[in-house]
Every structure is written in C-alpha cells, then in structure tokens.
Nucleic acid binder design. Structure first.
Lengths: 179, 179
DNA sequence: AGTGAAATTTTTACGTA
DNA sequence: TACGTAAAAATTTCACT
C-alpha cells in the first residue's frame, strides 16, 4: 500500500483545493474543477479509498489554546533498543504539548516539536518529561521564533490554481501561515 | 487577537473530536458531546469566530503522492537581514517539497521539513534550492526515518474521550500516525 | 468515467424557554 | 446559552450515456 497513486490533473487540483479549505462544498469544488458534482464526489471518494486522502482535520491555533511558545527538542536515546524506544515514543505522544515527533538518522535520535504555555512550562517539560528519563542521554532545546505550515505537496508540473477564484478565507498561494 | 480563549470542557471535547475527524457530521458531534445539534453548531461557529479553529484541511499521504523520503534541512543565513530573509522564506515556501518551515533561535537560523521523491530528488533540492543560494552559508541534512503527527494539543485536565463511542476510522488515542 | 435528477441527510435559521 | 422545529441546502444514490 506504499507506491505512488496515479493522479491526473483534476485529482491534483481537487487535492490542492481541499488542502486549502476542506470545508468547501462538493458543489463548489466540482464547479472549480469543471466537472459535475456527482463526478467530483466519485473522485474524492476514490482519493479516500486509495489512501491519498488520509482524513480531515481542523487546524487549531496553539496560541489561542494557551500554548504560545513553540520549541524543538533534540533527544539522544542511550541503548537504542526497541524495548526502550517504543515506550518512549508512546510517552512523548501522550504529552499534551507534543505536536510532532521525528525519528532521525543523525546522532540525535529523536526530535520533538512542542507547543508550550511559556518558558516555565517548557523548562518543566524538558526536565520532567525528557531529561529525567533513563533512556534519554542528551537533550537539546531550540526555540521556534516563527513557523509556516507546508502547502499542498503536489508534484511539480501540476496545474496552477484556476485564475479567478479564491475559494475562501485569505490564504496566500495555497500556503498557510500558522503563526 | 493573541491571548488564550476561554474554553469549557465541551469546547475542548468538540475540538478533540474534530481534530480526530473533521468529517464527522454536526449531528454526530452533538450526540458525542451530549448537546443539541443546533447548540453544537453554535459552539463550533463560536470556535471559528474567535479564531481557535483556523480552518479545515485534508490530510494527504506524501508517500502516495510520490514523496516517500522525508528530511530536515538546517540552514544558516549569512547576512541575517530582512531584505534577504523575506525572499528566502518565500522561495522555500514555494518549493513543492516543503512541508514546514521554522525560524529558529539557535545557530541554525532555519529548519525546513521536506518530503522528496527519493535520494536523488533530495540531493537536487539541497544543492539547487538551498546550497546554491548566496544568503545560505551552511546546509545540514538529516533523514527522517519515521514521524508521528501530534494530537489535539489540548490543555491538561481536559476530559478524556467519552467511554463508549469511537467516532470513526481506527485511530489510537486521538493521535495520528502518519507513516 | 461522466452525467442529471430524484431521494435522503445535513446544515442553517429562527422562535421560545 | 441552550433547545426544538421548519426551511434551505447539501450529499448521496441511481439509471443512463
């Protein structure tokens, strides 16, 4: 279930529009890509069924949830064995501050993106949730000043957004500024 | 428009459910949080209007879009002035491989999360899109073996998901494994 | 695969407690 | 603020090209 799916330009355009605003109605979406609503529904259903579209989520503003301070925490795991790593991953994903977790190829094994309530919360997190654990041999924290969410990830050569129509909101070029 | 919004436990539960699956109908959502559909609609509309909910997007599988290889690219910008930085940010956000961009506090000024078609594409990207630029003085690339998307980011103390009902799909604990 | 129209479900608006 | 009902609009199904 890994290989790349075959997508035509209409599929790519649908993905682009939905990634920009998934609340668009099927009717509007169909009009934007110039096909009938029922056909459009089939297209989207297919994209779901073949796993290109994994799901649909709301984008939440961390600041308005009381977590204005973001940071990246690099971690080195000492005996890098599965018995220690799996519980560690579970632990990190269980933290409410965790936004993303990466297992890396470099000397630092893991990178955690966290959103915290402030410097105090971040310090507490670094000390209590990471540094204090036996399997963690090194912790390095970097503050995030600003961040931008990625765009549609569409393959190069994909058709550019249709000229006239902004679908909704006030985005710029399909990219979403999150800060 | 920055301070934390006042949210009660119902709001938090709504956010959690929508973040898990934004395609849930308002009717189902209302039932899950035990309020009337019309009330639920008001709640969600409020969350949108006060900016807690920024929008709605589909989650796309990068692998199925032909980008199975992820990497983090650290960058140092030489004269770190706005005239150079702004075009650089625009350039990075314009790359189809870009998934996220961070402006950091450390010695490395920027971190770019990219999804690429493979080692060749990544090499081309590092050389042509980053290393070749005048304002970029240092490039460091780290491969991502595995990654996990963060969860609801909800404040601690928020009520756990209601006992019986899984809303849809087969997620685990509200977290979404993206690899 | 794509389409148009009917049938179903959902969203939305509004009056009331 | 929350609710229930009614109107509007959406999605979804289906027979046909």
């Amino acid at each position: 279930m890994a290989p790349a799916a075959e997508l035509d330009s209409v599929d790519l355009e649908i993905l682009r529009l939905l990634q920009n605003d998934a609340r668009i109605t099927n009717k509007e979406l169909a009009a934007a890509v110039r096909i009938a609503p029922s056909t459009c529904l089939d297209r989207v259903a297919r994209l779901r069924s073949i796993g290109v579209v994994l799901g649909q989520t709301i984008r939440v503003d961390p600041e308005r949830l009381g977590r204005p301070l973001d940071a990246l925490i690099s971690l080195r795991i000492q005996p890098h064995r599965r018995e220690l790593v799996d519980p560690f991953v579970t632990h990190v994903l269980g933290l409410p501050e965790t936004r993303a977790l990466y297992n890396l190829a470099g000397p630092d094994d893991y990178l955690v993106h966290v959103s915290t309530a402030g410097a105090g919360d971040l310090q507490r997190l670094v000390l209590d949730a990471f540094a204090s654990r036996d399997e963690v041999s090194r912790v390095h924290t970097t503050l995030i000043f600003q961040q931008w969410a990625g765009g549609p990830l569409l393959p190069p050569g994909a058709a550019p957004p249709t000229s006239g129509g902004r679908t909704s909101g006030s985005r710029s070029g399909g990219r979403v500024d999150t800060e």
